[in-house]
Structure formats: C-alpha cells, structure tokens
C-alpha cells in the first residue's frame, strides 16, 4: 500500500472542522427541541379519547418514521419553492429534521406516558387535582424520567443525522470533510478525523445523558 500519512493539511483546517461540528450540534439541539414539543403533542393526541385524533397521531408517526430523512430534506429544499415557499438551506434542514424527530419523540413519549401507573393518576384525582394539574405535576415529570434513556438514544441518532445537511451544502462537518477530501486527497486522514470527531461528540453526549439518568431516573418502588 503506497500511502503516506500526512495529517497536517487536515489539522490546518481545524477551526473549520470545529465550526462544522458545532453547527451540527446546534442543528441537532434546535431540531430536537422543536421535534420534542411536537412529539409531546402527538403523544398526547395518540391517547386522546377522540378516535380521529388518535388516528391522526398514529398516521403522523407512521409516515414520518418510514420516510428517508434525505427525501424529506430534498423535498423541503427543492420542492417547496414550487409552491412559492422558499426556505434557505439551514431552515429547510431544521424543519425536515424537526418533523422527522417529532415522530421518533412521539414514540418515546408515548412509551413514557404508558409507563405512568394509573394508580398515580387516581391518587392525584383523589386529592382533587384537575386533569391539567395532574399532567403537569405528576404525569409529565414521571414520564420524562422514565423516557430519558429512550430519549437519549434518539438524541444521539438525530445528532448523527445532521451530517445529511452536507448534501444541501450546509457547512457542517461532513460538508467540510468532503471539501478537504477533494482539495487535499488526504483521504484516510480526513475521514478518520471526521469520524473521530463524531464519535467523540456522541460519546460526550452519552456521558451527559448518563449523568442526567443517574440523578433523575426513578428506581422502582
């Protein structure tokens, strides 16, 4: 194998790479925040007494989970202008990832809601709390704690999906990696470093989540 390792050209571009992964994290945080709020609404809708609301919720989840995220991104970025709605790259990507995330978060929260024992809701009713307050003080706190592991897994998954923004030229890490790849031809080095950056980032997120779990997750009584 005639390959001379030379990391210098890549390391020269270190600030670029860092900004790339920073942007990736930002995209992930914003999209997951929006997706979580949406997902929570859908999760509650999936348990509503109204049958149409329930069907709507399940349809939402089913469609978005079965679509490749790349198709959603391209549809929003290239397809929407045809309807007169022109979004810039980053906004399209955030909308796409938020919608995608909402379906996954809805599933996470649905599982969380199911894990809240009916007895606790009744205990809240017995002391005279309204159903809104029961949700606010009892159901939601418990649901979040129980759903944290699943939430964390999805968080990491969605963070990795931010790499797809590179396909519409959003300046995140993968985009810069491709650029450096074509400029320097230091193929192994650049992809090694890019992968490493993602892995380290995912690991860091895992550590944060694990710390949160230790503090918050409820032990079974």
């Amino acid at each position: 194998m005639n390959y001379h390792f030379n990391f210098a050209p890549i390391l020269d571009q270190w600030p670029l790479l860092l900004s790339g992964i920073g942007l990736g994290l930002l995209l992930a945080l914003v999209s997951i925040a929006i997706g979580s709020v949406l997902g929570l609404v859908v999760a509650f809708a999936s348990r509503a007494p109204n049958r149409w609301l329930r069907s709507l919720a399940f349809t939402w989840i089913s469609i978005l989970r079965n679509l490749p995220i790349l198709v959603i991104v391209l549809f929003l970025f290239f397809g929407m202008p045809q309807l007169g709605l022109s979004l810039d790259k980053i906004t399209s990507f955030i909308v796409a990832l938020s919608l995608y995330a909402s379906a996954y978060m809805a599933e996470v929260f649905r599982g969380g809601l199911l894990s809240v024992p009916q007895g606790l809701i009744e205990a809240g009713q017995a002391i005279g709390l309204t159903s809104f307050r029961i949700k606010r003080y009892i159901v939601l706190p418990i649901m979040f704690r129980n759903a944290l592991p699943a939430f964390g897994n999805n968080f990491i998954s969605l963070f990795k999906d931010t790499s797809l923004a590179a396909t519409i030229a959003v300046p995140e890490l993968t985009f810069y990696a491709r650029k450096i790849n074509s400029e320097t031809f230091r193929v192994i080095e650049v992809w090694l470093i890019a992968s490493l950056l993602y892995i380290v980032c995912c690991y860091a997120i895992t550590l944060v989540l694990r710390a949160m779990e230790k503090r918050l997750v409820l032990e079974k009584t």
Binding site: P117, Q125, A126, G128, S131, T221
Partner: peptide
C-alpha cells in the same frame, strides 16, 4: 364539569391498596 369534579373529590380523602405515592 371537570373542575367541579376535582373540587368535589377534595372533600374526600382516599388511601389506596397500592399506596400510589408520587415516586418523584
């Protein structure tokens, strides 16, 4: 209505077989 029911429930106190304490 909902709010009325909640108010009426506060007139009684219930202790459950499975305790149902709020774990958090």
């Amino acid at each position: 209505g909902e709010r009325e029911v909640a108010r009426q429930r506060a007139m009684t106190g219930m202790v459950f077989q499975s305790f149902n304490l709020f774990p958090h």
